[in-house]
Simulated scan of single mutants.
Amino acid sequence: MKIALVGVAGVPLGKHKVKDPRLDKADKLVKADRKTYALVDVVGEEEAPTADAIVASPEGRFDLIVKDLEFAETRLARNPPATEKAVLEKIKACLEGEGVVAEAGLTPEELRLVESHAFLTAKPIVVAEAPEVAAFDDFLVRVVNASGYISFLTVGGPENRAWLIRKGATSQEAGGAIHTDIEKGFIRAEIIGWNDFIAAGGETQAKHANKMRVETKSYVMQDFDLANFRFKK
């Protein structure tokens, strides 16, 4: 996951840990050699067009709105096709009210009509005030959750680890987040829901309580599922 900073100073660029406290809790319940948080790439404003999400200061958010509004007005001045024009008018009205494209209420079909324009405010934007910038790594948990991502866990043995995936990802796709071989050779996923894991007091206890489920490749992962993947090597 890549997060671009717009108008936010004092945050080092590069890899940052997503310090979700749920991993800390899991690490106390399951013994492993190490604990590994999920990582995100934090990049500068120039990479905002290719970022998955944007963290902006209040002023930075306004600047993004202005840029998108200028583009919408320029495109409308070129007399686009009627269907595209209707969507652009809708976007323009939203931006003029200091809203963002992601909040314009566009249908999937309307989004497809303008996706090539790559409006910056169509991306998830999380506004960061000074206290949040000061504790940026803690703030990242909220940024990730607001940006359409969830985590799943693999636990025990050498490592207790959190992995980031997009909301709606299947178990097969989640396996691919670990290694492409798992996705290609996927057989099944052994899943323990987070609440069941906590209620039972650990992975082994959850298995003894018959809380582990065997899921196929089409299973949609839930936030902080514990997963073990079986695959052809």
Rank of each mutant, 00 (worst) to 15 (best):
K85Q: 14
E96D: 08
C94G: 06
A53W: 06
E46I: 10
T107R: 13
A135I: 09
A134Q: 15
E45M: 04
V144D: 02
V126H: 06
K123I: 03
A56P: 00
T107W: 14
E129V: 14
E46Q: 14
D33S: 12
R22Q: 04
S57V: 07
K19L: 10
E115V: 13
K15L: 10
I150A: 11
A32R: 04
F139H: 06
N145W: 05
L120I: 05
L76C: 03
V11K: 04
V144G: 00
G97C: 04
T50R: 13
S116D: 15
H16M: 04
D68R: 05
E73Q: 13
D27N: 15
P108L: 09
A104L: 02
G14V: 02
V40Y: 02
I65H: 00
Y149P: 03
H16V: 03
A53V: 06
E115W: 11
E46A: 13
H16W: 07
P21L: 02
D33G: 14
G148V: 03
I125N: 06
G99Q: 06
G97P: 05
A122H: 12
T74K: 15
T50H: 07
V144P: 01
L95V: 03
T50D: 11
K67F: 04
P58A: 07
E103C: 09
R61G: 08
F119N: 04
T121I: 05
G14P: 04
E115R: 15
E132V: 11
E110Q: 13
P58T: 08
K90Q: 03
E96C: 08
P58Y: 10
D138I: 00
L111N: 15
V6L: 10
P21C: 01
R61C: 08
V6E: 10
P81A: 02
D138A: 05
D24I: 07
V18P: 00
K19N: 06
A72W: 00
L106W: 07
D41C: 03
E132S: 14
D68N: 04
V141Q: 01
V127M: 07
P124S: 11
R112P: 01
K25A: 13
A135G: 11
F139N: 03
R142K: 15
A86C: 02
E73T: 12
A77L: 09
A48G: 04
V66Y: 07
P80H: 06
I125M: 12
C94M: 14
T36D: 12
A77W: 09
K15M: 10
K67G: 02
D63P: 01
T50A: 12
I150N: 07
E115D: 14
V66R: 15
K17T: 08
K25P: 00
E73G: 05
F71S: 11
E70R: 13
L88D: 09
A26Q: 07
V87E: 09
V100G: 10
V141Y: 00
F62P: 00
R142S: 13
F62H: 14
V43C: 06
